[in-house]
Simulated scan of single mutants.
Amino acid sequence: MPETPPPSPAQRILPSVILETERLRLRAFVEEDVDDVFLIYTDPALQRWVPLPEPGVPYTRENAERWCGEVAPALRANGDGQHWAAVEKDTGRLAGSIGLLRTDWPAMRTELGYSVSPWGRGRGFATEATVAVSRWAIDQGFERIELKAATGNAGSRRVAEKAGFVLEGIERNAMPLHEGRTDLAAYSLVPSDLAR
């Protein structure tokens, strides 16, 4: 009789938490966010660097509905990471999205990604949320937080640098866009960076 394999370890998932910063409340996506999510992800400035839902395919309201109701919650449930709606405390308006993704549990490594609404850009929201989420992830025991930005996306690269991430190099021809491809600037944050 064949030997029965040992049970696999339980799937690891991040705790479901709400994070607060000086101006933002980072919480789960809800159905009421659909209109704002659609507005954010159809913005041409964002679509230039973040080709969602996939390169060459326009973002639809159905994509926004699926994101809020199915995709974002599933990313946490399947152990991939966690995504938050970044809501401005003063107005209750959705300022953007931030999340951890492509989590490698054995290596305790994850990647951080964000997007900001057209009205919220240039106000420091992305940096504020990036600091909060990356430090929270390190408090959860992560040894490496990665952040990648198109080399031409100066705003996103500034966020990484202001949040204390260290530029490691350039991944050449690494990401497809709606039109063409781009190199990615690869940044990281490790616990020892916080001591500086």
Rank of each mutant, 00 (worst) to 15 (best):
M1P: 12
R157Q: 12
G122F: 02
R61F: 08
G96V: 09
R196T: 06
P5L: 01
F142L: 09
T103S: 10
P118T: 13
E111Q: 02
E62W: 11
G120I: 04
M175D: 09
L94K: 07
T103M: 11
E32W: 01
L112N: 00
L101S: 09
Q140P: 05
V37C: 10
Y41E: 14
L167R: 10
A10D: 10
Q82H: 10
I40K: 02
H83Q: 11
F142Q: 03
L75H: 05
I18D: 09
E22H: 14
L147H: 10
S16C: 04
T182I: 14
Q11M: 13
A107D: 12
L75M: 11
V71E: 01
A126Y: 00
V30C: 12
T91W: 08
R102W: 05
R109I: 12
P55R: 11
P176T: 03
D193M: 04
G113T: 01
P6S: 07
V37I: 15
V131Y: 05
P44W: 05
P6H: 05
W84D: 01
I98A: 04
V30R: 13
S192Y: 05
V133Y: 02
W49E: 11
R66G: 03
A195Q: 10
L177I: 04
R158D: 13
S115N: 12
V133N: 02
A64S: 12
A129R: 04
A86W: 02
G81L: 10
W49H: 09
A72Y: 01
A85T: 11
L14K: 08
V87R: 07
L52K: 14
K148W: 12
R27K: 03
L167W: 10
A129D: 03
E88V: 04
T130E: 01
D43M: 06
F165R: 06
R93E: 07
L52V: 15
K89V: 08
R27Q: 08
S117R: 06
A163G: 00
W105L: 10
A74V: 12
S117K: 09
P15Y: 14
E143K: 08
R109D: 14
R27C: 06
P7Q: 13
P9N: 08
T151L: 14
E143D: 06
G79P: 00
F142N: 00
D139R: 02
Q140S: 03
T4G: 09
F29W: 03
F142P: 00
Y59N: 09
V190E: 02
L26A: 08
L24G: 06
L52R: 15
Q140M: 06
E70K: 15
G169W: 13
R102I: 02
E128P: 02
R66W: 00
P118L: 14
C68D: 02
E128F: 04
P106A: 13
G152M: 04
V133I: 07
S188T: 01
P58W: 02
V50T: 07
F125Y: 15
P118C: 12
E146G: 03
R109Y: 07
T21C: 14
F38P: 12
C68Q: 02
A154D: 10
P118W: 14
R66Q: 01
A129H: 01
Q82W: 08
D43V: 07
V87F: 06
N153T: 08
Q11L: 15
V50N: 07
